[in-house]
Structure formats: C-alpha cells, structure tokens
Design a protein around this nucleic acid. Structure first.
Length: 559
RNA sequence: UGGGGUGUAGCCAAGUGGCCUAAGGCACCGGGUUUUGAUCCCGGCAUUCGGAGGUUCGAAUCCUCCCGCCCCAGCCA
C-alpha cells in the first residue's frame, strides 16, 4: 500500500483552532447519506473527511441515515452504503437514523408552535410556491400565518393522527417572507405522507423536511462540526435559526466544502439512477460507474481512493478533477504489489519453425521485477505461441520496435525471434507469423552482444488458458456531459466504453488466479477478476491501462 | 436592479503583509536506468497570483471599484 498523504485543509484548521481555544474537548462528526441510491466517489470525499477527522482526532463519527423521505428510500440502499464505508476502511462510532429522532423532532415542532414560530398552512403546494416570490422579489405571507397557537397545535396533532390526506396541510416556520434568502421564507417543516417508512413502518404519516431534521439531529448527537457541501451554504441561516430557537442539547457548527467533480462522468445520484434504470449500464456496480461499488468491482483499491481524495484536498472552490489523477492513484498503489503475468488479449499465432515439434520447456519467471519476495511462476515455451496482434505491423513507422517482416524482438522472459514469413487470409490480414528463434538467447542472454530493443509478451498456444477480458473506457465521450443544456446527457455516452474480448489467452498460472488479487498483465494494464468470473469461465476487468508513452507518441487509441 | 459563495499554471492545490524573483501533486516536455515503450531516477514547466486603482519601505496576502464562474424560487436531500 502506498503511503497516505497527510491531510491539511481549512476544516482541520478550524478544528485545530477550536481545540486550541478550548471550545471543544472532543470532536464529533457525522456522515449523513440518504439511502436512496449507491454511494459514489463524491461521497468518498465526505467519508474521508468525516471519518478521517474522527480517526485522527480520536473523536466520534456517526453514520446517520437521513431517512426523512419514505418515498425514495430503502433498506437495500442503506445496507449497501454500510458495506461501501467499511470497504473504504472506515468504521462509525454509532449508527443512527434521522427517523430515530422523529418523536423528539415532533416535540421540537410543537415547541416552535407554542412560541409562535410555526404555523399550519392549509394551502396547496402551488399556492405556497406562488407566494414564495422570486429571487428578486419578496414573497407574501400566507393567509394562515396568523392562525392561533391553539388551533395550530390542534391541527398539527391531527396531522400526526392521520386525519388529513397528503398535501392538505403542512407545518411551516414563521420567519420572514421578505428575506433575500429564500430558505428563510417560512420554510416547510413537516408534510403529510401516508406512506410506510422502511424503519418506522406506519407509525408516522407526517415526515420532517431535511432542514428541520438535519441540524437537530446533529445537536442531539453532539456533533461539533457538521460538514456538508456548498449547496447547503444558504441553508446555514436556517440551520442556525432552529438551533437558536429550540431547546437542543448542543450547538453544532455547519461548515461547507466544495463537492468533488470528475470529468468524463456524472456525479449526481439522480443521473446515475437514470443510467441504471434505463439499462445503459449493468447496474449500480457496473465497473464504468463512479460509484464506490462500481470502482470496487472494477478493481480499484480502498487505499487508491483514499489517496485520490487526499491529493485532491478539501476547499471551497468549485473544481473538476481529471480522470487521469484517479488512474495515477490506482497505478501507484498497484505497481509495487501486483503480481505480473502475461496475457494476450487479441491473439496472433506465431510458429517458431526451428523449434522442435512437440517439444516444450519450462521457464521460471519472477512474479515481480523488483519484489523478489513475491516469488516466481512457471511459463511454458513451445513451438506455437500467441503474441498480441498489435505487436506486429506490416509497415512499421519510425521508432516502432516490435515485430515486422524481417524484424527481431525479444519474447519476454524467453528467446529472441525473427519474423521470416507472414501468412494472410483472403483480405490480406495477417493470421499467422512464421519465425525463427535463436537458441542462444534464452535466460536473458545475448551471446553476440546484440541489442534487441523490442520486448513483447506471449503465451504458449497449447499451454495457456482462455478467458474473457473486459476493457473499460470513460463512460462519456466528452469531459462535461452536462455542459450542453440543449442535449440530454445520455447523448454524450461513450459507445465504446466497454469492449468485451472473448478469445484472450492467459499464461497457465492465471488458471488458478486468486480472486482478491489485482494482476498486472505485463505491457497491458492492471486487471481484476469480475464478480461473474468462474474457474472454468474466467472474466477479467481492466482496472486501468499501463502508462504508454509509445501510444501517446504515435497517437493511437488506448484500446 | 436579490442573496450566498468563489477566482494562484491545462487540472488540483499550498500560501493567513517581508526568508514568495509563489510549495507540492497530476498532466506535459526532455535525459538516464530497465528483458514490461511499465516502474524508478534526474531536469524543465507562473518575474506572477481574475482585472484596474490604492495603502505600505514592502501585497497573492489589506482597502476600493470592476469582471468571470458556481449555488438558491421541492410539501427532495
């Protein structure tokens, strides 16, 4: 595992100050996902921040499900979220739910009504919307705003008792319809929803809104620093208003940071949900998805994700991170530890004419070029082998040092061969190369001192296993799929984001490949067995390709 | 002509008035090592901090004005 970056950011500076000035003895954070979808790498930023602070400051961090909207949420999503957090390497101090506080929140609402700070509004949502005003014009007071306290109390109680249909009434805070901050224009606190909740069942038919549940939940848990993303900045005034006007047990502070954006993908749960439901991807854990589970299935490691977030940092500046940084992080994590193997993805047969028919030999090759403690594996060399189709060119450009008519290359861990003849099909496409090998060049030797620059990977035709290999590319073909407001983001989907290669040949040692091991297929990339892989039907996912300076120079595509 | 934010290299990001003629990472461009065109190593890459004024002996850091970009009008979170 690569060394993790020591975090320094403005949130930690605030915390350091709070500790130095004695404002807090213990630091308490929370991660508050809504269980209405899978976690994505953007959540990873929040997880890393909140749980990282808990770990480093020996504080507490609650995993609190923000389950205030039974229409959208489910236990299935909640379970997945727990799994993802643990997989990333974090553990919560306590598990909680906004719904654990429904009774307390109800009492808080009653408190506001008694103080004359909340009222039951009996208008439709359309009427309320019309009265809200616009960004530049103030709103107007609801005709029910002056309802008597006793009447509000009674109505609110009857709302809870289920005496009204959905939408008939709402409870609203009484703040200021002329506020330039729209969140303060008498926000809705409770709405009626006759819908079973995944945890409280039919106990409730009124549910608190996010704004009314979140800050109070923080206060109940003793959260000291409530870290959220920038779009909640305008809600802070409301957050503070509730804390001020309610008899809550503590006074948490909300601090906002900018969310993570990655180019060539989308990071909104709503859009990811569409991709899944419309079948554009193979579920939430499709290896092309920016979800934690997708990245996990793809083969990304927890450390690489943590390091990625650490190197991106925490600020208040809007940002779009390049995919290349994520890729660099996983390569960095995998290179020192991944066992090497040879795999030919698009096989081209090579017959070594001067190698005896029926003969073969075993070559002992190290699993890693630098880490000798990873041991060795056995390769079998024989007269018929496969090499990568892209390692042969009829008419090589300048600077190409692989196979071509008359050209010589080194077979990785084996002999130097020279291409003497090309067998073609009707279309003129090469289907087989005839080569001569030099018996004096085994074991890395070159007796005549000749320098062979090209080294290519190979497998023995009769000593290799078949496998399916899936090559993944960016999900979208443009850096920002949402930039064109006139086009649906689905139109920007990359039609080549998945290439499934079914005729791949792997060295025999991969027949017993470990399910949890990420391999480097030499010269190709890092690979991980897919969840669907089986011993008799191997499936490998490409995590990321190797850096390829030749490809970049010659301007080819990564596949 | 509303409110809240934010602007340091292609992408992130340190920097909190003097050791900044601005860290570090990614990307990119050289060069070296190498039986992976990988890894590793070495070097290059902002006289300038959105712009213009001002304060100061001294400003990316303070003040003023201007400009760009992001968020907010769910009984979503």
């Amino acid at each position: 595992m690569s060394e993790e970056i020591k975090p320094v950011n403005f949130v930690r500076q605030i915390i350091d100050d709070d500790i130095r000035t004695g404002r807090h003895q213990e630091i308490v954070t929370r991660f508050p996902p809504e269980p209405n979808g899978y976690l994505h790498i953007g959540h990873c930023k929040s997880i890393w921040l909140n749980f990282g602070i808990k770990d480093d400051y020996r504080g507490r961090c609650t995993l609190r499900f923000d389950d205030t909207n039974p229409l959208k949420e489910s236990q299935k999503f909640a379970s997945m979220i727990e799994e993802d957090i643990r997989w990333l390497g974090y553990e919560w101090t306590t598990l909680a739910h906004a719904s654990d506080y429904f009774e307390q929140l109800y009492d808080y609402a009653v408190h506001l009504i008694r103080e004359g700070l909340a009222f039951v509004d009996s208008q439709s949502s359309e009427q309320i919307r019309e009265q809200r005003g616009t960004l530049t014009e103030p709103g107007t007071d609801s005709p029910f705003r002056t309802r008597a306290v006793e009447e509000n109390l009674s109505l609110f109680k009857r709302m809870r008792n289920g005496e009204f249909a959905d939408g008939e009434h709402v409870l609203r805070a009484k703040i200021d319809m002329a506020s330039p901050n729209i969140n303060l224009r008498d926000p809705v606190l409770y709405r009626i929803r006759h819908h079973a909740h995944q945890r409280t069942g039919d106990r409730w038919c009124i549910y608190p809104m996010y704004d009314f549940a979140h800050g109070q939940g923080d206060a109940i848990e003793g959260v000291t620093h409530s870290l959220c993303t920038l779009e909640f900045e305008d809600h802070r005034a409301l957050y503070d208003w509730f804390i001020e006007h309610l008899p809550v047990p503590s006074r948490p502070r909300q601090i906002e940071f900018s969310r993570l954006n990655l180019n060539y993908t989308v990071m909104s749960k709503r859009l990811l949900t569409r991709l899944v439901e419309l079948g554009h991807v193979d579920g939430w854990d499709d290896p092309r998805m920016p979800t934690i589970s997708g990245l996990r299935r793809r083969g990304y490691t927890p450390a690489s994700l943590r390091n990625f977030i650490a190197s991106v940092g925490i600020t208040r500046k809007p940002n779009v991170i390049e995919m290349g940084l994520l890729e660099k992080c996983v390569r960095e994590d995998l290179d020192p530890t991944a066992p090497r193997a040879m795999a030919v993805l698009r096989p081209l047969k090579v017959v070594i004419e001067n190698y005896p028919e029926g003969a073969s030999e075993v070559i002992e090759a190290p699993r890693h070029p630098h880490k000798t403690d990873l041991g060795t594996r056995q390769l079998v060399f024989s007269r018929e082998i496969f090499v990568e189709r892209s390692d042969y060119l009829d008419d090589p450009p300048k600077g190409y040092f692989r196979l071509a008519p008359g050209r010589e290359v080194r077979l990785r861990h084996a002999y130097v061969i020279r291409c003497t003849e090309v067998v073609r099909d009707e279309q003129g496409e090469p289907v087989e190369l005839r080569c001569q090998y030099d018996p004096e060049t085994g074991r890395g030797q070159a007796p005549d001192g000749r320098k062979v620059k090209g080294i290519i990977h190979w497998v023995s035709a009769n000593h290799s296993v078949r496998a399916q290999v899936r090559l993944y590319d960016r999900l979208f073909s443009v850096p920002d799929p949402l930039s064109d407001r006139d086009r649906d983001f689905l139109e920007a989907l990359n039609p080549h984001s998945l290439e499934c290669l079914k005729e791949c040949r792997l060295e025999t040692s991969l027949g017993q490949a470990d399910r949890d091991t990420r391999y480097q297929f030499e010269r190709v990339g890092y690979f991980f067995q897919d969840a669907q892989s089986a011993p008799d039907a191997l499936v490998f996912n490409r995590i990321v390709s190797l850096r390829d300076t030749w490809m970049r120079k010659s301007g080819q595509s990564p596949n």
